[in-house]
Every structure is written in C-alpha cells, then in structure tokens.
Design a protein around this nucleic acid. Structure first.
Lengths: 244, 244
DNA sequence: GGCCGGCATTGATGCAGATCAATCCCGCCG
DNA sequence: CGGCGGGATTGATCTGCATCAATGCCGGCC
C-alpha cells in the first residue's frame, strides 16, 4: 500500500540493490562499502536452511530466490519471493527461519552478520531504514495471508501476477497498461507460493488465457494486456485495494 | 521461534505492556512517560479502519483485539490477534492497513503518532526495539502463511490453539503440560483467523474433543491436557518446529 | 417461569481443488 | 534426425470443506 522510498545507488553497487543506506552520509557509506563483499551462486544453491545459523546478511543484486518451509510430509509453502533489492537474513537473529534457495544464478551483496549488527547499533539511519523495510515485508506477508485464507485458485493466481507486475513497475520498468512479465519461477514454485497443486495452477493459467486476461508467449513469460482488468479478478477494488 | 525478550514494567504502566522501552535509560523513560496517555474502550469498538489515517500508536494493556481485512463481497480474513503488549499502528505509516476491532473491553497506552516518530528518530534504543518487535510479527505472519497455505482444518485449529497456549506461557502463566485457555474470540472470529467457515471450525473443535486432545469446559474455554500431543496434530515436529 | 435472540452445533448436499493418470511439449544429446 | 527426460498440460475421479438448513443451548428480560 505504500511506495518503497527511493533507493539510490550506493558506492560501486549496481543500482537499486543496496537497500540499507538510503540516507547515510558519506562516512556511513564508506563504512558500509568496507563491510560488504559480493558473492555469485548458481541456480539451485541453498542460501539458508530453516534452523541453521546464518553468518551473512545479504541483499540480492541480480537473480531471484524463494523463501519457504517444507513440512515433514513434504508439503511446501513459499513465504516470500526474493527479487533484486530484497534482503536475506535478519539482524539480531542468528538462525534463518526458512529455507532460501536461488531460483536462478544470483549475485549477492553480503555483510558479515556481527559487523552488520554493530553498524545497525551505531548508525540510526540504518536501523530506521531496516524498520521501514521490515514493515513493508510485514504488510506483504499479511496481505498474502488474506490471499491464502480467503481467495479462490483463480483469484490467487491473478493476485500473484498483479503483485509481480506492480513490483516490477515500481522498480523501474515503465508501467503502461500492457506489459510482459518474465516469470522467475517454475509452475511448481508458483504452486508452492499460491498454496495450490501444480495441476490447479496450470489449469488456472489456461483459464485466464482463455478468458483473454493474460497471454503466454512462452512458459516463462506472461503478457498482461490490461493490468487493471486482471486486478479486478483478484478482488482488487478500483482504487488500489489489497495488493501493495 | 525466538523468545520475546524480557519486557520490564515501565514507569506507572501495568506490567509487561509497554513494549517499546526495554533498554531505555532514565531520561528516555521520562520522555516516554510524558508522551503517553491511557484510553479505555468497550468491546466492539473500532480502533482503526483499513485506509483511514491513524493518529495514535498504541500498545494493548488489557483486553484483546483483531486485525483483519474484509473483501468487498464480505469474505473476511484476520491477519493478527492482538493481546496485551501487542502494538497497534506502525511508525512512519499514517494509515492503518487493516481494520482493528476490540474483542473485549480494552485498555490502551497511546502515543500521538508524530510525537512517537520523533522519539523513534531521537532514541536509537526504541528504533532497535521496534525492529525486534516487527521481526517477531513478521515471523508470526509468515508462519501463519504456511498454516493457511498447506494445512487441513484440523491442523489449523491445532496450530492456533498451540500458538495461543505458547504465547500465554511465554507471558507469565506457568507452563506445565496441561493448561486451560481462555479463548478471547468467538467461533466466528476463530473461523476468520483460520480461513475456514464457522461450521467447519465448530466441527473440528468437536473432533479434537472426541479424540481427547482438548476438553471444552465452556464455550470460551479450552483445556489442553497434553500440549505436546496437540502440537503433533499441527504437524509440529518434536523439537519445536513451526510454531513460534 | 417462559419467551426471545444470538451464538454454537449438527446434518445433508454440492463443488472447488486434490489426486491419480495419461499425454504433450521442447530442449538436449547421441 | 530420432530418442530421451523433465516440466507442463489435460482428463477422470475423489474428497474435504463450503453451503444450506435445522436444531440446540444459554443468558437476558418481561
């Protein structure tokens, strides 16, 4: 519901990823510069496991990842889709609460956890910025709770596509009514996010296509001719309702 | 998954509610003392409406409230059950994202929003404390996402009762294997939280009772003879799995 | 005490989505 | 070019929960 504040490029980081230093002054930036390091990992790499200690906090520079939990009997639920500028790990928590797995090749900008926690203590701006980010994540998580608790399969898919489209629009990529999404996830990952099976997910994609709400140029692409019309399918009322 | 840090009584507030000043020094406490005021409201009062500006941030001293969203067609999903020490409103957000309604008579400890935001900026401890609280809420919201996305009606009810029991245990009330919960909500509110209908919720209460997992001395009380056994029903593996 | 109204329970039936089971599609590699 | 393999789609059937409809319970009030 709230716009992400503008996140400037920071030092030599690629644009828009270094979400922790929006208002830092030059000295603070220099400290962050010294503390960070980069890491590249291939698709499929586990970046964190539920319950395991996590020694680095990182933000995603390029690529995407899932954050999910798997129950003992194999049922899996994704709790977050991580895209560039999203954060992995929480200051003050030594263990990850969820499994994080790279969906594609990923570039991370990392901070050693202890160092980062010291920076947070010593730099009020960072704490405030982290609070804002965390509140955004909290809104997103609660909004998704409504989707999973009360929406039909069709509505869930529409809500997901709309939120993905809006997230993309927000981070650059000119808006306009029509747009083509590059899906960062497989049907299985989508199903895990939507709380559905692969089969139901696939059927709903087909259904939305037959109804002219989306087009599917390829498996990993979805073209949305009219975002507002799709948003209506997600139970989104005219003036910007549920979906951040 | 993480214990709430110890929250000391603060000034003349009743114990355990004033969640924002865990490590403040005397001066900071004095500032908070001056900034806060109390308010009592009867059951059913609306404390915030989705999209409406919220002029006060408050923490619950006594009583309980729901935080929920209602879709245009009437479907409702609760995104949070607010108990003593829980916080209403977010610093930096002028509008509430959800409806908040008092379930019982409620005592609030309030801070005027602008004042509070200034305190946050000027008092690093408060920002850090708020970040910790928000991270806890984020964990809880994501955990509930798993419940709503992948669990059966029976598992959802068990998960809810276990989380309620653990929350109560954490805030005082001696643990032990057996305990009696005072339910702060009606069957309808429970259903809204669980993402089910009233009827299904009621049937599952009956089912757990018939299976000896719970007893129901009265409509608003549930006795749990063996919390661990109930936790098993929620898909909680032995060593503390999902439920915070 | 008896009636009323709101919440809770229980029963009968319907349907959305899960499950089980074939294909289909397409990139890859011999 | 043809065969292989993994993801995606489509179809047939099953089932857990929603829906519709009584009925039960209890506290308040005349």
């Amino acid at each position: 519901m709230t716009m992400q504040p503008h996140i400037p490029a920071c030092g030599n980081c690629p644009i828009r990823h270094n979400a922790v230093c929006a208002e830092c002054d030059a000295d603070e930036l220099a400290v962050l510069e010294r503390a960070k390091s980069y890491r590249q990992v291939p698709a499929g790499t586990s970046l964190a496991s539920a319950g395991e200690p996590l020694h680095y906090l990182s933000s995603i520079v390029t690529g995407s990842a899932t954050m999910s939990r798997t129950l003992e009997d194999g049922r899996r639920q994704m709790v977050g889709l991580l895209l560039p500028s999203d954060f992995i790990g929480r200051p003050g928590r030594s263990a990850s609460a969820y499994d994080v797995v790279a969906l594609s090749d990923v570039t991370l900008c990392r901070f050693e956890r202890r160092t980062f926690e010291r920076l947070v203590r010593e730099t009020p701006h960072i704490a405030t910025r982290l609070l804002t980010m965390t509140l955004d994540e909290l809104d997103a998580a609660r909004d998704w709770t409504v989707v999973l608790g009360r929406m039909t399969a069709r509505e869930r898919l529409a809500a997901f596509l709309v939120s993905l489209a809006r997230r993309r629009a927000r981070s650059g990529a000119g808006a306009g009514r029509a747009l083509t999404l590059q899906l960062p996830l497989s049907r299985e990952a989508m199903a895990d996010h939507l709380g559905l099976t692969i089969e139901t997910t696939s059927r709903q994609v087909t259904a939305l296509r037959k109804d002219g709400l989306i087009e599917t140029p390829s498996l990993r692409e979805i073209r949305i001719p009219d975002l507002e019309r799709l948003a209506l399918e997600a139970g989104d009322d005219a003036d910007g309702g549920i979906l951040s």
